[in-house]
Amino acid sequence: MPTLTVVVPTYRRLGYLTEALASVRAQTLTDIEVLVCDNAADPATRRLVTELGDPRVVYVPRPRDLGLARNALLGLASAASPLVTKLDDDDAMEPRTLALLAAAFARHPRIDVAFGRLRLVDHDGNDLAARTSALDRHSGRALMPEGLVHGLDAVIGSGAMNLACAVFRREILDDPVPDAVSTAYDLHLLLRLAARGAPGWYAPGAVTRYRLHPDSDTNTGAVRQGLGALAAYDLAEREARHDLRRRPDLLATARTHVAVRTARGLIRAGETGRARQVLLQDLRHHPTAAAARLTLGTFAPSSLAARVSRARGAAWERREAAHDLTDA
């Protein structure tokens, strides 16, 4: 049995995928399994994997398009090892990533997850140092020491832990992931990890080169992903894993941030009524002035609401751009 399984969900991205797989094969931890889960069953992707000639890298074609989330989740659930990680086909790992994170589990058997930092890069792989620094400051990672992290709710709420730079126990996938969380399944799994109550381990070094580009899922499906994230928060609360009403902490603040951003997207798409529903539900969880103002705006005619949302949201979005990941 390999020490760790790397799941690489992919869909017709040969150029990025070539770099992603090269970074996995260059890992200093060599006792690994790599599942390339091809949601397109693309002959060119099959050929790329076959020509690598690496028995650790397994091509897993999907007979039909399962969607981004289901493709990744099936890959993670089918891992042969007790530890898993996901590498999106447009990202890449630093050479010591897997050795660094897997070693934490050997030293601390009680942990459920080990994670590190993201290094943001552009379409061509060039460092986005200013954005990385801003993200580290905003999330609190800039001040986090190496070691055990208790109370994972806080690091999830602040954005300090991301599934893109984490190794976790495969057993958290034993329960099905609801379709409602859609492409926000990563948040759902993080909330599930936090609810188990075990500590995590943080390694302050950058472990993943995280690519920001126009074709990312968050850019092309921001509203869908936002609605999925809200479903993940609500599901966690219904299952009594987290209580966002009685304890309005960083998780509740993060939920409101997602609700406002998603509502703005819905308003721009002309779905003012649906935006109002999103905002009203969030106000019941965590009343804020930003959500209240935007809710009032939804009672204006759709065209006027869209113009007001754009005008008021421009400054807000510029302020938040440095803090948000725009890829998923």
Rank of each mutant, 00 (worst) to 15 (best):
R25T: 11
L35R: 15
P9V: 00
G159E: 04
A130K: 08
L68W: 13
A166M: 08
R284V: 11
I111P: 03
V223Y: 10
R107S: 14
A102P: 02
P214K: 15
A72D: 04
L101D: 10
T295R: 12
A263W: 03
L73Y: 05
D136G: 04
Y233K: 07
V24S: 08
R70L: 08
R284W: 08
T85Y: 02
D88A: 10
A315H: 11
V84M: 06
I111Q: 11
H323V: 01
T18L: 06
R47G: 04
L48P: 03
A263M: 03
G265Y: 02
T132D: 06
R238D: 14
Q225K: 12
G157Y: 00
L148A: 09
D153Y: 04
R46P: 00
Y11A: 12
R268A: 11
A252I: 00
V7D: 05
A206F: 11
G116E: 06
H285W: 08
R209T: 02
R307W: 11
L73H: 05
A77L: 07
D91N: 13
L98S: 07
A92S: 14
L163Y: 04
G313I: 05
R96N: 10
A263T: 01
R119A: 15
L35K: 12
F168T: 09
R70C: 04
L279P: 02
G221R: 13
R319G: 01
R13G: 12
A180Y: 04
S182G: 13
L29W: 06
Y185K: 08
L35W: 04
A164V: 09
Y210E: 09
L35A: 05
N126E: 14
R318Y: 08
T30Y: 03
Y210H: 14
D65E: 07
G116N: 06
T295A: 12
